[in-house]
Design a protein around this nucleic acid. Sequence first.
DNA 1: AATTTTAATGAGAATGAATCTCAAATGCAT
DNA 2: ATGCATTTGAGATTCATTCTCATTAAAATT
Lengths: 149, 149
Amino acid sequence: MKKERDLYRDFLKSKDLKMTKPRLIIMEAVFENHEHFNIDDLYEQIRKKHKNVSRATIYRTVPLLVEAGLIKQSLRCESKDIYEHTYGHENHLHFICDNCGKIIESGFSDVAILIDLLAKNENFEIKEYNLGARGLCKDCQKKRIINEK
Amino acid sequence: MKKERDLYRDFLKSKDLKMTKPRLIIMEAVFENHEHFNIDDLYEQIRKKHKNVSRATIYRTVPLLVEAGLIKQSLRCESKDIYEHTYGHENHLHFICDNCGKIIESGFSDVAILIDLLAKNENFEIKEYNLGARGLCKDCQKKRIINEK
DNA sequence: AATTTTAATGAGAATGAATCTCAAATGCAT
DNA sequence: ATGCATTTGAGATTCATTCTCATTAAAATT
């Protein structure tokens, strides 16, 4: 938590942005709990302690955290953008169950090497991987056998 | 175009859905041009020839094409869902330029093998890969050097 | 520490993609 | 051709996200 705050502070300073109370509250809330979260969740979480942080400010601040490299936009779920921590977290990919919505994470160091090669072929400079697959998790595979006919 | 239509027809029949004029028009428009398209593009394209196909019907029909396995939802761009053909197209991944928005496609057969392994570890059954990365394309890397101070 | 300057905030209005509603139209089995 | 369930078009609705703008707060200057 310490380091995130310092990085954030430095980032804001480098952009001539002010370190305000709402910006600090939001950043701390983001790193308090979740790995995956959406703006609504975050708003509810913050509201429990701070009645006067508005949705608008959260919508304005989250992109700053992205730009600072502390979080990234990872998925969409129920028509909402989902974010996740990046600082201090290994790259990973998401297996998303089409049936129950469960998100399974899995490391991908070997995969990255191959993708880096493909990128090199295209002279593309990767900033951020975005890897995943949809399908059926273990449990829902079983359910399907039972449910179908 | 012939085969797509047959597959679609069979799909509709299997679901007890009717092969209506709008459903045919929309399906043909989808396979007329694009690889990547959003609903708005599709609507405009269709409107040129058929003044009486409504947006609502397009929004209703595109998910049918997805369910039939002919297209899939691939990306989001400018807050809009983007679709792409799957039938007759190799799996590929997307490199998306953060600066100019260009989408570069690249095959990924080797990558898929690795990801299949990871999925097997989690007992996850993959229906559809979703692979990509964000960064800078060749041209925008050059521009960056020029633009940044 | 008080003042000035400038950016950031909160609250609610606005936007816009996607979904829903329902009367009218159409496909299809008979 | 007839009847009936399904689908459609048009516009209303929803809901996540963005915008507006008067007020407030941060930091720069005195």
